[in-house]
């Protein structure tokens, strides 16, 4: 047992709404941990507490032995945590390749490096790394396109490439296949599986698509109304009456 992420007793309120209610979560190194649950369960809110977008009202979030609370987003990323957002966050005005190069530069050069005199064209290593990663996610053909022109599914794959090029220790994926056609979804599953096997990157995946969840996850946490109601191995989740109740009682999945 070697937890990379340890979340204890996390609470978060938005006015009268208890978005996170005493959440506990442990993610083992090298595994894929899925979080599922109906809309509004608090899944994205929980991820926001890992990357510095939100600070929990109470509780602790430990990553690889250090607390993430109170750290800025760029500091958390530099510790090795990358995230794909629920609504794609990319650099729309840059080319697809430049998007990935920014991420690769941030990984190599750290949070700030004044390199105003060197030529981007001379960064062959960064370019090759970015291209190889685009190849991995299947976007190499579109490298010269303006990112704004990509389809929603492709934007998500681009964001995934931006995270992967940083070789993160922990990859947070908020609905990585939403908006993708079936074939692209399957490609993405294959890619994520391959990454787990080859590089052993730990992942936390939020997904509504059960096909994706059950193909990838080693463990699953089910959230409803701010609680983690069940945490178990995939084969034990399907038949669990609490889970069925959460989905039937709450909004549709």
């Amino acid at each position: 047992m070697d937890p990379i992420l340890k979340v204890q007793n996390v609470n978060k309120r938005f006015g009268g709404l208890k978005a996170l209610d005493d959440v506990n979560l442990t993610v083992e190194r090298g595994t894929v941990h899925a979080i599922i649950g109906p809309n509004g369960a608090g899944k994205s809110t929980l991820l926001n507490c890992f990357v510095g977008r939100l600070t929990p009202d109470t509780g602790t979030v430990m990553f690889d032995g250090v607390s993430l609370l109170g750290r800025k987003p760029h500091e958390i990323n530099q510790l090795g945590v990358s995230r794909v957002f629920q609504t794609p966050e990319i650099f729309e005005a840059l080319s697809v390749l430049e998007n990935v190069m920014v991420a690769a530069l941030a990984h190599r050069d750290g949070a700030f490096r004044m390199n105003a005199w060197g030529a981007l064209d001379a960064e062959a290593e960064i370019r090759d790394l970015a291209l190889a990663t685009l190849e991995d996610v299947g976007l190499a053909q579109r490298r010269a396109m303006e990112a704004a022109a990509l389809s929603r599914g492709d934007k998500r794959r681009l964001e995934l490439a931006m995270c992967l090029v940083q070789d993160p220790k922990l990859l947070l994926l908020d609905e990585p296949t939403a908006g993708m056609a079936r074939a692209d979804t399957n490609n993405t599953i294959d890619l994520l599986k391959r990454l787990s096997e080859e590089r052993g990157i730990t992942k936390v995946v939020i997904e509504h698509d059960m096909h994706v969840v059950f193909s990838l996850a080693h463990r699953i946490s089910v959230m409803a109304q701010g609680h983690v109601i069940v945490e178990d191995r995939p084969e034990n989740i399907k038949g669990n009456p609490k889970v069925q109740e959460a989905y039937l009682g709450g909004a549709h999945a």
Partner: peptide, 21 residues
């Protein structure tokens, strides 16, 4: 330069740039 690329990224999506480290 790489610096120039970072500035253009900043203009395009400052949030993303923060979460990119």
């Amino acid at each position: 330069s790489p610096f120039g690329l970072m500035l253009r990224a900043l203009k395009s999506n400052q949030n993303r740039l923060n979460y990119t480290g």
